[in-house]
Design a protein around this nucleic acid. Structure first.
Lengths: 336, 336
DNA sequence: CTCAGATATTGCAACGTTGTAAAGCGATTC
DNA sequence: GAATCGCTTTACAACGTTGCAATATCTGAG
């Protein structure tokens, strides 16, 4: 039986409200009373009942973070950033893994943990703009890392097209001409894949290199295995590439593995660039050139957007904020 | 303004309690009323207020998982398993990162999210048996992955000593004789490091190989960088090892990186074994021999222990359950 | 047509908290 | 010595839900 304000009040010989005042640091409490109450509080090891508090205050201090997979390093790192950013607002973050499944994302969108969470930060994978617009739940929401949502909800993104172009231009700048791409998601026009592909194409075009469809490798998902397998197929081409831009670091790490296995030297024979700047890439052999989104900024902006949405004008028009990114050049493109 | 039972009741022309009965699938509701209420429910898009429900039921359906770092792959993978296991009980998991810091672990122990969480699964790094015993919070708790807690609380472990011995014996079985260990935590006798060190020693002893203190490398933390650095020092020894047992896969991956950089062939010159079986190890070059704890089993057992503690006898004596593990032999010890 | 015995529905209270408004109580002022 | 003022403390209600116990309604037997 946990102790309640009532118990403490009884022991200290004051009213429940006075105890509440002490607990909440209300100003006008005489120091004598305060001391007495505090002692009772300590003796009984009082812990406020958060459910009751939330009910009363219509605010839980809990926000949900819905994302595809927690054991994808990018999302694990991003999660850490979000938790850190939320801490600054003394929020608790509740994590929801969707595995990128449409059903589960739809559940998230229609309202999870009803009226328990104050807000939602959502990184969708399989959700369309229409679905977002037809959302009935009115929990404040901020979308993370996608551009599909234009105009439908607050969201934070990085400039995927530009970033992909920069990565590809870096490869071109090294003198490469047969540049492959790994990670296309032909099945859908949602998500980041089309954007990164667009950036890749822009860079080729800018350099006057003809686009070669056969150098674009799809990836079923964004795991190492997909990258490894795609690289296999690229190497088996009659005229293999001299550089590869992978849409994620994990794909790139898979690709690296295939290259090392097949004895292809990186970056001499094939240069490899990734996207995400996950820790693994920094410690790969060779270390991985990549696009580093500013994850802390992404998280901070998302949390701030959500905070203002929670605090204020729920009907304000959706905002879109762009976080910065940076090309980080490492061994996989320029060697030691 | 979210809809409450009261709103629905008003629209359906019934009492609040009847709506509640419909929502909770109570048996004795006439189908006519049920239909009418259901329609009102749908029209108003009713969502129960979980705070109110929790307050009333003294049960939130939320359990906390406190662990050192979410972006350590082992914990990310374990988290996924815990979430999956919790789903079977329709629990929500709230994650708390301690970074292995004593202060934060102490906070966890003394009660986080008071009376919001029904239970706690805690993977401590810097917490002693005494601290656990002196805990005042009476939220049901299960410890995960440690053996420091003997007799102080429910906990789920794997047999670290045995597992480490098996890994080391595997190396010995390959004919290696100068076997190093990376990951000792000299600063404390908490946690798994001493156990794995003990298993390592047992294996040496069993094979009649003298224990050589200089082959045991400490690690400040369990990141790749620590493993990489420790391996540097081992290679600089006048008489370098012919095998290394790393206390975690991440350390092993760091060590591998150093070996590849220095042009030492694995496993020919030095065989490497890790511990954890994280996904990265499976896709490393060479792929990593490791001890694979059954993470699903660990999670499931932890959740079950917690469930029985929540449901039942809070004063029952602490139980200890051992989950299984398995040596997975890959290229880093036996080559292609 | 009555009455038991079901089934269906309801009002009330309570979970623990906090905002509001009012009351209690010294001290200061006239 | 009464009125006023500021500080301190309090009672009450309400947040949305559900268990309990009571009441209302219906069914069929006598």
């Amino acid at each position: 039986m946990p102790t309640s304000l009532r118990d403490v009040a009884a022991r200290a010989g004051v009213s429940v409200k006075t105890v509440s005042n002490v607990v909440n640091g209300y100003l006008h409490v005489s120091s004598a009373t305060r001391a007495r109450v505090q002692q009772a509080l300590d003796e009984l090891n009082y812990r406020p009942n958060l459910s009751a508090r939330n009910l009363r205050n219509r605010r839980s201090g809990i926000v949900a973070l819905a994302l595809p997979e927690l054991d994808l390093p990018y999302f694990a790192e991003l999660t850490r950033c979000v938790i850190k950013a939320a801490e600054a607002k003394s929020w608790t973050v509740l994590i929801d893994q969707t595995d990128g499944l449409p059903d589960r994302e739809s559940v998230v969108l229609q309202g999870i943990r009803d009226q328990l969470i104050d807000g939602l930060i959502f990184s969708p994978l399989a959700t369309s703009r229409e679905q977002i617009l037809s959302r009935r739940d009115d929990t404040p929401m901020v979308l993370l890392g996608e551009l599909v949502a234009e105009g439908s909800a607050d969201h934070v993104v990085i400039d995927n097209v530009l970033a992909a172009r920069e990565a590809t231009e870096h490869l071109i700048g090294l003198g490469r001409r047969r540049i492959a791409a790994i990670g296309d998601q032909s099945r859908s026009d949602l998500g980041t894949a089309p954007l990164r592909l667009a950036g890749y194409k822009q860079a080729l075009e800018g350099a006057g290199i003809p686009f070669d469809r056969s150098l674009v490798m799809p990836a079923a998902s964004y795991h190492r295995a997909d990258g490894a397998e795609a690289m296999q197929r690229l190497l088996d081409l009659p005229d293999p590439p001299d550089a590869v831009f992978c849409f994620t670091d994990l794909l790139a790490l898979g690709a690296l593995r295939t290259l090392l296995r097949r004895g292809v030297s990186v970056p001499e024979q094939i240069a490899v660039a990734g996207f995400d700047d996950i820790e693994d890439g920094r410690f790969a052999t060779p270390s991985l050139t990549t696009i580093a989104p500013d994850k802390d900024e992404l998280a901070r902006v998302a949390v701030d957007l959500l905070a203002s949405r929670i605090a204020g004008e729920p009907q304000a028009p959706p905002r879109e904020v762009q976080a910065s990114h940076q090309l980080v050049v490492r061994e996989s493109t320029v060697g030691h």
